[in-house]
Design a binder for these strands. Structure first.
Length: 364
DNA sequence: AAACCGGGGGG
DNA sequence: CCCCCAGGTTT
């Protein structure tokens, strides 16, 4: 690569140091490492995209208990998949995972194309780094990864300025990542790169004194390893307001509606939302029989990456619903059905019952 | 309160 | 190339 920064070590020396570190300090007992299969590695990598290992483990085990094979996932209802994703966030990941399983069934003979980065990238939710991780970990063939951990480690080792999300910077980092990738022990090397960033070359408090690269690390030599990577340019978040209707029937069940299949909380079940109280009143007039409004609950905030949502819950009881109500359910908090819930909705419903709404092992 | 994270999509 | 979108955890 023409614009690759000068490597700080020969590739073979880098690999030797990293793998020695991994053999002593890396993670060797993650649930997707044994048994290792393309399917299990894939699911783990999707879950790990925005989420840390310790959080993922429980979700991964529940997911595998319900969908032990690609075929079982492909044939599952979307609600069940989203249910097992509830609380993990970025629900498009679950929708894409489900869709990709169905595509693999239809187009790849029921298996992931796990020896081809290009073919994997043709499946929704799999980009270059995730594809590389699947190939390297499940087949042992040579493929590089560039997740947030690797970006952080490499920007520090080479003191690369600029935000790594910029295409020009990212291209340099890919060149380095490819350069250092070995031809053997690919699964270990890939896990080692992730573990190194996650447990030693951490965002704050990097453990430079224990680092096997501290003699060649440019950021360490400059005395400010935390200067790298530079952070993303920030934008100010707008605030939006919404009223969430908590409509209770005489049995204490709560009315939920399914959200559109894509976009915010796509495919999840949520409380009916309104911009203004007048719109909520219109809705009650049209749909609810004998509605009785309680006092509003305290407002709270839910923050997204691009705006802040101020939620005001409005409890109302009624005898029943009268109008046309497609894609809605009366949700019994004591016998919760297997549905995906938006996080603030889950929090609101949790207040109504002593029982957890989390999916439990062997139950979901 | 702010930073973080891998990928999809559109201009 | 750029910007927007999406949610829960850590610091």
């Amino acid at each position: 690569m023409a614009d690759m920064p000068t490597p700080r070590l020969a590739a073979s020396e880098f690999q030797l140091r990293l793998l020695s570190w991994f053999d002593r300090y890396g993670r060797h007992d993650l649930p997707w490492q044994s048994p290792r299969s393309a399917y299990r590695v894939w699911v783990s990598e999707i879950m790990l995209q925005q989420t840390q290992v310790t959080t993922v483990i429980g979700y991964f085990e529940r997911f595998m208990a319900s969908f032990p094979t690609l075929e079982r996932l492909a044939n599952a209802p979307q609600d069940e998949v989203l249910h097992l994703w509830t609380g993990l966030g970025y629900y498009a990941r679950a929708r894409n995972l489900h869709k990709a399983a169905q595509m693999a069934e239809a187009e790849h003979g029921g298996k992931l194309p796990s020896n081809s980065v290009e073919a994997l990238m043709g499946l929704p939710g799999i980009g270059r780094s995730t594809a590389g991780a699947i190939v390297a970990q499940s087949t042992g063939q040579r493929a590089a990864i560039l997740d947030g951990n690797v970006k952080r480690s490499l920007t520090r080792l080479h003191a690369i300025p600029g935000w790594p999300g910029k295409p020009a910077i990212e291209q340099q980092l890919w060149a380095l990542a490819e350069y250092y990738t070995p031809t053997e022990r690919l699964a270990d090397y890939t896990q080692a790169m992730m573990d190194f960033g996650a447990t030693l070359c951490k965002r704050s408090k990097p453990d430079c004194l224990s680092c096997p690269f501290n003699d060649v690390c440019l950021a360490y030599a400059q005395g400010e390893p935390k200067r790298y990577p530079e952070s993303k340019p920030k934008k100010t978040l707008p605030t939006r307001e919404t009223i969430m209707l908590m409509l209770r029937d005489p049995e204490g069940r709560i009315w939920l509606e399914k959200r559109p299949p894509s976009g915010l909380w796509g495919g999840l079940w949520s409380l009916p939302q309104f911009d203004k109280h007048s719109e909520l009143n219109d809705w009650l007039e049209a749909n609810a029989v004998n509605p009785k409004r309680d006092s509003t609950s305290p407002s709270f905030h839910h923050t997204f990456s691009h705006f802040r949502l101020e939620i005001t819950p409005q409890p109302v009881s009624c005898d029943r619903l009268g109008g046309v109500r497609e894609s809605g359910v009366w949700y019994d908090v004591n016998h919760p059905p297997a549905l995906g819930l938006a996080a603030p909705v889950k929090a609101l419903l949790s207040q109504l019952t002593p029982f957890s709404l989390n999916p439990t092992p062997g139950h979901a």
